[in-house]
Nucleic acid binder design. Structure first.
Lengths: 148, 148
DNA sequence: ATCAAATAATTAGTCAGCTAATTATATTGA
DNA sequence: TCAATATAATTAGCTGACTAATTATTTGAT
């Protein structure tokens, strides 16, 4: 059918994969692999402790998937789980002091790569691309819930 | 830094994930999960037997990762590994007759979803989006090999 | 006030991807 | 020719994601 549809489908498969692989490769020297650095990055960007729930949503994984990552990060002293005072079911995830510092470095690497990949783009065209991607995301949300 | 850069990074994380989850959900009634339907789709689109190598590249995974998927598909009678005659190391992956038929149905579901997600887009804007994504992919390839 | 339903985190079990190393065969170069 | 190198598929072992079920606590409805 539509050649454009096929093209964008393939690009949406390939581009994020390549991006992730690159970032993963550059962050590997820090000793983090695949998923753990994303947790530190999101916590770093948040600037405050987050509920496990909320953190999972920002990373884009299920809360259950986050549990093991936090176990690893906690064992290595990068985060602590702090009992929430209002809700005794909930825990707030805090960066330790050494992680605060490190997450700054990770952010620099991530932002440098981002600039490298996106720096050469025309600003107007990038805006259009964002608009289109947002429309696709909206269509995907609608597709999930037929009529709500 | 640049708000646009952050936005496109997030969209590139979220959109393909949502798309995949939707397609996975719709193909689950056929009894295939996550990765196996992609193999059948690509073989169906190819229209001829492919080397394992080549198939892995089209699916976007490593040849080693393909092995287990093929084991499962072969066990259920969807594909056969056929010894290549020129190169005795190589195998060509063929769809069985029942898989030929099924892959047509899977293709229809996949194409219907694609149309659903992309149908509402402005053609000109979609072209721009494709161009931008292709530029990002090119930048990612360059980033991998500093000067080659 | 209490009991039912919802929610936060966890555990268990499955599937899918990766890299590194292995085996068999092809290709290439001295 | 034949030894070194490269290539196709595989195996093994690791990481990370998911869903479903469990536990503890909170919220809501009567």
């Amino acid at each position: 059918m539509s050649q454009s549809h096929q093209e964008v489908a393939e690009l949406l498969g390939a581009v994020p994969k390549a991006w992730r692989a690159l970032l993963d490769q550059r962050l590997r020297p820090y000793g983090f692999s695949q998923a753990t650095w994303q947790v530190l990055l999101k916590l770093g960007r948040a600037g405050e402790p987050l509920l496990q729930n909320e953190l999972a949503a920002r990373v884009g994984i299920e809360p259950a998937s986050l549990v093991r990552l936090l176990d690893v990060l906690q064992a290595d002293g990068w985060i602590v789980r702090q009992q929430d005072e209002q809700d005794r079911r909930a825990k707030r995830i805090c960066l330790t002091a050494k992680a605060e510092q490190l997450s700054g470095e990770l952010l620099q690497v991530a932002d440098a790569l981002k600039a490298e990949l996106l720096g050469g783009l025309d600003a107007q065209e990038l805006q259009t691309c964002i608009k289109v991607l947002a429309q696709i995301r909206a269509a995907a949300e609608q597709a999930q819930e037929p009529t709500a």
